[in-house]
Design a protein around this nucleic acid. Structure first.
Lengths: 241, 241
DNA sequence: GGCAGTCTAATGTCTAGACATTATTGCGCG
DNA sequence: CGCGCAATAATGTCTAGACATTAGACTGCC
């Protein structure tokens, strides 16, 4: 058993009282001076505990007014974590592999706004135990990521290559449900119109587009799952049987 | 302009160098003693900056070994926020309304494991400008939330009522793609088999199940969207045109 | 009664130290 | 050469103060 630092103990004492409902939103927490006396420690120690709680959004601190239990956010938007395909597959104990189906370098079209003048278009099929798992269509801007032109996407899938070579500063995800269209259905071994989960992901680096990807998952075989508590980010890896 | 505290300035200096790629993952950051000299401040101040960065996952600190730029997390690399239906609709400038289609109190079935002995089953249709937006089927455990038996779910939708009356401590989300089946298709005004986004949400309070809900969105009309940067949580509300 | 200015209670930052903890490094010994 | 132990370099925690900043509370004046 390692001993818990005092500041953490103070923080979790308070967190427990908030979680249990003993201290409801709006309740004014004892002042630092009072907690100092209660725990017999310096104010910096209490202050650190409160700063931590405040950073996690459990309490709101205001000078002179004191510290109160925060009201839960109104737009209590819950979260779902989107795992990396390879670790997702391997996390299920299956063998991961991928096939590069298409690789062309071409000028960008008008509807590919912001992707730079030249880009690579890729199509990759990701397999779990040799069964189609997801079909990925991806554009990579050669303006932002010129090294991509000489990358070997048969060795590493484009998602992994980008993760290692092109850190992004902004991202957007879009999840929707679509029916598998002709080519996609064929590649995934589905009949036409089968409901699929479509995950669209765009990233930018300092305002310049890096990549734009669409991944299509057979609806029956794939769920996005997240399990979490309100004060923590979703950390547990999704598991599906 | 309010002046920036020194510890924040140190932290953002370092953050900038990480974001710019100048300091790549694995790079060893100057020691606290070095930063102390560089900024001419006490070690506590540097330490606080590093503690903040560490809490946000940008760096990894290890005694004796020093502080290095963290490798971007392989798992859970991305998130999507799931907004509250009502604010989602109103955020698009549409009028929100809802209809209670079904409300029965009954004993739980075997496949409704963990939901307590008695529960309420509800079906609610959420509308945006009087057009069907999502169909929600929900179970609420009367063991955990007995007050729900006397709640008026025609006035407030069950999701909103629960948010206000039954705080949860644990939640699970599952997103999948399904084809609209007979009754669901009818209620949403779709033809059979139309791809729909299915959002399943379960919550618990101290280990006891509170609610279990399934929401079905027409695939063509609804996306989950999140836009964010790697160091921050997704805060911006998704917008779809 | 109301308003302006002042007082003051609370948090926010920072310092210069102290000692604890941990893991690496390197040395000496077999 | 390799093993174990000691030295040491780095972070982790904590203290007892100091001064800054903010905003609620009060007071007195009109």
């Amino acid at each position: 058993m390692d001993i818990e630092p005092l500041h953490r103990r103070i923080a979790s004492d308070i967190e427990r009282r908030i979680a249990s409902g003993e201290w409801r939103p709006g309740f004014r927490i004892p002042t630092e001076a009072e907690l100092m006396a209660e725990y017999g420690c310096a104010r910096m120690t209490v202050s650190r505990a409160m700063t931590d709680l405040s950073a996690r959004g459990l309490v709101v601190r205001r000078r002179r007014a004191g510290t109160v239990v925060a009201h839960p956010p109104v737009h209590s938007s819950a979260l779902v974590a989107i795992p990396d395909i390879q670790s997702e597959i391997e996390g299920r104990g299956l063998a991961y592999s991928h096939q590069l189906l298409l690789r062309i370098v071409r000028p960008s079209r008008a509807d590919e706004d912001g992707m730079g003048a030249r880009l690579i278009e890729l199509e990759t099929l990701h397999l779990a135990d040799a069964m189609p798992f997801t079909l990925e269509r991806r554009l990579i801007s050669l303006t932002t990521a010129p090294e991509a032109e000489h990358a070997d996407f048969t060795a590493a899938p484009p998602g992994g290559w980008l993760l290692a070579h092109m850190p992004w500063t902004e991202a957007e995800h879009r999840i929707s449900a679509v029916g598998a269209d002709g080519e996609t259905a064929t590649r995934l071994g589905l009949s036409d119109g089968t409901p699929c989960l479509r995950l669209e992901r765009r990233t930018w680096r300092d305002g310049l587009a890096v990549t734009w990807a669409w991944q299509t998952f057979p609806g029956a075989a794939y769920d996005l799952v997240a399990r979490f508590s309100p004060t923590q980010s979703p950390m547990k890896t999704p598991i599906k049987e």
